[in-house]
Computed example of a mutant assay.
Amino acid sequence: MKLIYILLFSLPFLTFGQKFTPEEISRIMKGDVNSSLPIFQTSDSLQHTILLAKSTDVKPRNKYTKVLVSRMKSALLSTQGGVGIAAPQVGINRNIIWVQRFDRPEKPLQYFLNPKIIWRSETLNLGPEGDLSISDFRDQFYRNQIIQLEYFDLKGKKHTEIVEGFTAVIIQHEIDHLFGILITDKIKEQNLRKYRPVQVYQEIK
Rank of each mutant, 00 (worst) to 15 (best):
L3W: 10
Y5L: 14
I6T: 09
I6Y: 03
L7H: 10
L7Q: 12
F9V: 13
S10E: 07
L11P: 06
L11F: 14
L11C: 10
L11G: 05
F13I: 03
L14F: 11
F16N: 03
F16K: 05
G17M: 03
Q18N: 14
K19A: 13
K19L: 11
F20R: 00
T21A: 07
E23H: 09
E24S: 00
I25Y: 00
I25Q: 07
I25D: 03
I25K: 08
S26Y: 11
S26N: 14
S26G: 11
R27F: 00
I28R: 00
M29S: 09
G31E: 03
V33K: 12
V33L: 05
N34E: 09
N34Y: 06
S36R: 10
S36E: 12
P38W: 06
I39E: 06
I39R: 01
Q41W: 05
T42Y: 04
T42I: 15
S43Q: 13
S43L: 11
D44Q: 09
L46H: 13
Q47F: 02
Q47N: 08
Q47S: 11
H48A: 15
H48C: 13
H48M: 13
T49L: 14
T49W: 10
T49P: 01
I50Q: 10
L51Q: 05
L52S: 13
L52P: 02
A53M: 10
K54R: 15
S55Y: 00
S55T: 06
T56F: 12
D57K: 14
V58A: 07
K59H: 11
K59V: 14
P60W: 02
P60Y: 05
P60K: 03
R61F: 12
R61W: 15
R61H: 13
R61K: 15
Y64E: 08
Y64P: 00
Y64W: 11
T65Q: 08
T65G: 08
T65K: 01
T65V: 09
T65M: 07
K66H: 12
V67Q: 05
L68C: 08
L68E: 06
L68M: 13
V69I: 12
V69F: 02
V69M: 07
V69Y: 04
M72T: 06
K73S: 05
K73V: 02
K73D: 09
A75Y: 01
L76Y: 03
L76M: 09
L76Q: 07
L77T: 10
T79N: 06
Q80P: 09
G81M: 09
G82I: 09
G82R: 02
G84H: 07
G84W: 00
A86C: 11
Q89H: 11
V90Q: 05
V90K: 03
V90P: 00
V90R: 07
G91Q: 07
I92A: 01
I92P: 01
I92E: 03
I92C: 01
N93V: 13
N93Q: 15
R94N: 08
N95M: 14
N95P: 04
I96V: 12
I96D: 01
I97R: 00
W98A: 05
V99H: 00
Q100V: 13
R101Y: 06
F102W: 01
F102S: 04
D103S: 10
D103F: 05
R104A: 14
R104N: 07
E106R: 12
P108W: 04
P108G: 01
L109A: 02
L109R: 07
Q110H: 08
Q110Y: 01
Q110E: 13
F112L: 11
F112Y: 15
L113T: 01
N114H: 04
N114G: 04
N114D: 08
P115L: 01
I117D: 07
I118C: 02
I118L: 03
